[in-house]
Design a protein around this nucleic acid. Structure first.
Lengths: 222, 222
DNA sequence: AAAGTCAGTGAATGAAGATTCATTCACTAT
DNA sequence: ATAGTGAATGAATCTTCATTCACTGACTTT
């Protein structure tokens, strides 16, 4: 194996690494700004400044502004999918799996604060095609929760509700913390909020004969 | 009373009427467009065309685009306040008052479809001051529901939850129909959706000994 | 009927900002 | 050492509107 080839491979790897870094860097900068001010008032120049690069460079990584915004949103949604699937893995009890999925969701919301609700705020500025992708990702990220709900029903642990309505509504309450942060944070910590919403949602569906099994989740509603 | 004055009064009234009509006309046109495509891609020219007037005229009624968008949002929120206060009036049972407030909310959401969620989508494009006004209006429109919840707790009909968390979460459920219309409308009518969410929310809080009193609201969860 | 008032018009202006591209610079291969 | 590659820059260009304002025409008043 000639030296030149080794070096070329190394160079190749370095380039790939750079591409990833830059992309991340730009996505993060854009997410930070978009979390603060609608895409309309975030200029490409702003993004460049925030990322510490020049405007022109952005166009090496994203074809145009649309695509950048779209990528930011998809990135956030992807984060949800990943971070929810994880804690749900090893929980055998379906009811606790519901709670775990919700907690995972809430953790991401808390962490990404403003960026978490970008999908609500920017969806209309996206191309119809991009909008569809966002919808798909959203449905996908709700899957674990819907599945857990379905299993809880089959196991006779909770009442017969439409898993999709229950799960989606529940998920929205996770977003609600970010959407109405200005309101809830006046009188609740994030932990308290999560606990209270978990108790509320589960209290609605857990069958009376099983309530006693979940005092920790139901809290004062037990 | 000289004729001239009578005529002046009449002219005065006509002018006021015209002002109201035009304002409504512009607000409606703008709401229609904003319901479809973020404010950034709705031009003043678009609004003028939709309303069937010239661009210049808009500036007789609204100082600038900001103010127009703000007015559209406030108009929608005002509609909520009015339409929720009404059905709540004559319901003596606090639990049924909760259901009535929610139903009122849902009715407005259904009617105004896309415009109902403008506050979520455009809030970041507003001036901080305008944003605060929107927040106030939102809190105000939640009041009847919070009050009813508080009374239901005091009457011992429902469990001791934080009325603000319960009410706000419940309200969001109403918005959810508009936000995720593309999803829910696949398998539910609006009526079914309202019934199901009402049952879910109330099932979480109604005390066991009172559940039997509300079979119509709890439906299959009774 | 002459003068005044005011809703309404829409072309012209100016600013903002997305996108392009000629050029620089650091690094690698020969 | 020299040529080659491509990342990075940022000034210049090009569009798209928001906003203005000189003008028109209907209607009122005297």
């Amino acid at each position: 194996m000639p030296t030149s080839e080794v070096r070329t491979d190394a160079a190749e790897a370095a380039r790939t690494a750079l591409v990833d870094t830059r992309r991340r860097q730009l996505l993060n900068a854009a997410a930070r700004l978009l979390g603060r001010a609608g895409s309309q008032s975030v200029s490409m120049q702003n993004v460049a400044d925030e990322a510490g690069v020049s405007v022109g460079l952005i166009y090496r990584y994203f074809a145009n502004k649309q695509e950048l915004v779209q990528a930011v949103i998809e990135d956030v949604l992807h984060e949800f999918s990943v971070r929810v699937a994880d804690p749900v893995q090893d929980e055998p009890d379906p009811v606790r799996r519901i709670a775990a999925a919700f907690a995972g969701y809430c953790a991401v919301v808390q962490e990404l604060r403003d960026a978490a609700v970008l999908a609500y705020q920017e969806s209309k500025t996206l191309e119809p095609e991009g909008r569809d992708t966002v919808k798909d990702l959203e449905v996908e990220s709700a899957e674990p929760l819907i599945a857990a709900t379905r299993e809880a029903i089959d196991a006779g642990l909770i009442r017969e509700v439409d898993p999709r309505v229950f799960a989606y509504g529940f998920l929205t309450t996770a977003h609600l913390w970010a959407l109405k942060h200005w309101y809830f944070s006046r009188f609740l910590t994030h932990e308290q909020y999560v606990a209270e919403q978990t108790a509320l949602a589960l209290s609605a569906v857990i069958r009376p004969e099983h309530r006693a099994a979940y005092p920790d989740l139901l809290g004062p509603l037990a």
